[in-house]
Design a protein around this nucleic acid. Structure first.
Length: 573
RNA sequence: CGGAGCGUAGCUCAGCCUGGUAGAGCACUUGCUUUGGGAGCAAGACGUCGCAGGUUCGAAUCCUGUCGCUCCGACCA
């Protein structure tokens, strides 16, 4: 490609809309332009990178045995109602009506459609296992799009779905995808690592997210450097000790605590109850009914874990009047002692604890000497607390660390209940029985991955593309473009030869000053730049410059060979 | 949806408080000079000051409404 014949609108100044570095560089390097909030136009250079990432994904999906399909984006709401996700996702779904006033859904993902396909086409165990994938535009009604392509209303995603006869076979399909994901992100030049992920309302224990470490990431990752444990904060556990038991009296004792409505206040004189001897009582409305959640006073509830325990995402903190109706007291004086009307869930860390202090469900009073098992016998135990940095790893007891990351991929074992049974994807097993397919689903945010690469690979001058996804691998920069000049003749010759060898090459044939060309090439981030100028050409040389590396003079006659050598070495030399 | 901020040239922004003929830099067009890290000079083109009302002799500026964008929070199957 000749620079003058394409559109690469680089910007010297950063548009005000961009907040994070990768977003600024996407705009400045002329890869994308914003149409409106959460919607972006891909320019020629952006499309090239997109296609390269897609191609890597495609190759690794194919290699893993997955079959490429293309599913409709416009989908009937009926199948969403059948799976129960019409309600579960609710406002996150883009919906529209046609001229006959019939409603349609814009696909945010395609479990329902693929399961419908499987229901029709897969009849026998002989057809299993089967994994399908597609790369397509997806839609989500994001409450707040942000960070450019990171969280957009419309984005490109690779989604894949596996169908198996048994749990064991499904595990194997899951593993294949997991392995393919590692190959994909490595090929994209991304530092990344899989972490155990929350499985939310679906349950089960098998889900991993592929994270790219970045301060701008929206996820928090808990990890152990010693043993390799890594999990999303929503899922992470630690080996933190349970609450110590102590000698206590036979019954809780009520005591007056006028005006004390926070954990903090109760830690102070005259009560002086440390936070770790208090029970924090939270009230949520789940499926329209109150539930009580107990965590230790110095712990934080993890709502993702709560969703998993409640088996629903439809819950919210109760409003003060609802709390008063339910318990007869206001927040700050709440407790679960004697509460039998509502379900009570208590964090594992409180198991066996006694001598604890909690609200008495009477404004201005608390109980002390509370023993969890004795005084709140109806409590169901669950892991509900949020892990903190520095807590001991559950596996090896070394201190855990917390780091932010960008989720670029997610693999998920679903099983058969969520979609197969509801949408009738059954097959006939070898023994003649009818069984639901065991499903897995697997996503990669293509556009998000693209931006993650930029977020991770840049310097003060601009993007530093890994060779595998660079829009062009080589940029030829003639300093002076007078046609017929020795410089331009050589540039044209090398350009033609590299093209003949199948190298992705762009010739900067613009009549611009050298400074402009250098700055643009650096900003866009081509891995290899070949500078051709009168000064060096007088010595029979051209200049080979690796992005972010050193400048090496090479003989003009050897330039093509050197570039190819450099490419073969992965751009590393 | 709650909180905060911003809408003025393609981009970055000044002007608004204190009402009086629409500004700068970059980008763009033309010419000359320049030519190894975002050149200089000269000339030029580019605006319903987000939109709609209102106040006023007069509104980018003050008031009301509205739309949009950005940030923080809630949300993220």
């Amino acid at each position: 490609m000749r620079w003058s014949q394409t559109l690469i609108p680089t910007l010297k100044e950063t548009p005000a809309e961009a907040e994070i570095l990768s977003h600024k560089l996407l705009l400045r390097a002329g890869l994308v332009r914003k149409l409106t909030g959460g919607l972006y136009t891909f320019l020629p250079l952006g499309v090239r990178v997109l296609r390269k990432v897609e191609q890597i994904v495609r190759e690794e999906m194919d290699r893993s045995g997955a079959l490429e399909v293309l599913l409709p984006t416009l989908q009937p709401p009926e199948i969403w109602q059948q799976s129960g996700r019409y309600e579960a996702i609710g406002d996150g779904l883009y919906k529209l009506r046609d001229r006959a006033k019939k409603e349609w859904v814009m696909s945010p993902t395609a479990e329902e459609v693929i399961t419908t396909l499987a229901a029709g086409e897969i009849n026998s165990y002989r057809q299993l296992p089967a994994t399908f994938y597609q790369i397509s535009v997806k839609f989500r009604d994001e409450i707040r799009p942000r960070f450019g392509l990171m969280r957009a209303k419309e984005f490109i995603m690779k989604d894949a779905y596996s169908f198996d006869a048994t749990e064991e076979a499904a595990m194997s399909s899951y593993r294949k995808m997991y392995d393919a994901y590692q190959r994909i992100f490595n090929r994209c030049g991304l530092k990344n690592f899989p972490v155990e992920a929350d499985t939310g309302v679906i349950g089960g224990n098998l889900s991993h997210e592929f994270m790219v470490p970045a301060e701008t990431g929206e996820n928090e990752i808990v990890f152990c450097e010693a043993c390799g444990y890594a999990a999303n904060l929503e899922k992470a556990t630690s080996g933190i000790p349970k609450t110590a038991a102590r000698e206590v009296g036979p019954t809780p004792e009520k005591f007056a605590t006028p005006g004390v409505v926070t954990i903090e206040a109760l830690t102070k004189a005259p009560h002086s109850v440390p936070a770790n001897r208090q029970i924090k009582t939270l009230v949520f409305i789940a499926d329209s009914k109150p539930v009580l959640i107990l965590v230790r006073g110095d712990d934080q509830l993890n709502e993702a874990k709560l969703a998993s325990v409640l088996g629903t995402t439809v819950f919210r903190p109760a409003e003060t009047p609802e709390i008063f109706d339910a318990l007869g007291a206001h927040p700050g004086s709440l407790g679960a002692v004697g509460v039998t009307k509502f379900p009570v869930f208590a964090d594992e860390r409180l198991r066996g604890a006694n001598g604890m202090t909690t609200g008495a469900n009477e404004d201005g009073f608390h109980f002390n000497k509370v023993s969890l098992e004795r005084d709140i016998p109806g409590a169901r135990w669950a892991d509900l607390r949020t892990v903190g940095a520095g807590e001991p790893c559950a596996k090896c007891a070394k201190p855990l660390k917390i780091q932010r990351g960008i989720e670029v991929g997610h693999v998920f074992m679903i099983g058969s209940k969520k979609y197969s049974e509801k949408l009738n994807a059954y097959y006939l097993a070898e023994d003649g029985t009818r069984k639901p397919c065991v499903m897995g689903c697997y996503g990669i945010g293509i556009t998000r991955t693209l931006q993650s690469i930029i977020e991770q690979s840049n310097d003060k001058d601009g993007i530093v593309w890994p060779l595998t996804v660079a829009p062009y691998q080589v940029c030829i920069t003639p300093l002076g473009v007078a046609s017929g000049s020795a410089v331009m003749q050589l540039a044209e010759k090398i350009y033609a030869e590299l093209q003949a060898r199948g190298v992705d090459v762009i010739l900067d044939d613009r009549d611009e000053r050298p400074g402009v060309k250098f700055k643009d090439a650096d900003l866009v981030g081509f891995p290899i730049r070949l500078g051709i100028g009168e000064k060096s050409l007088a010595k029979g040389e051209v200049e080979l410059k690796r992005r972010g590396g050193t400048l090496t003079p090479v003989l003009a006659a050897a330039a093509v060979a050197k570039v190819c050598e450099c490419l073969a070495a992965g751009g590393a030399n």
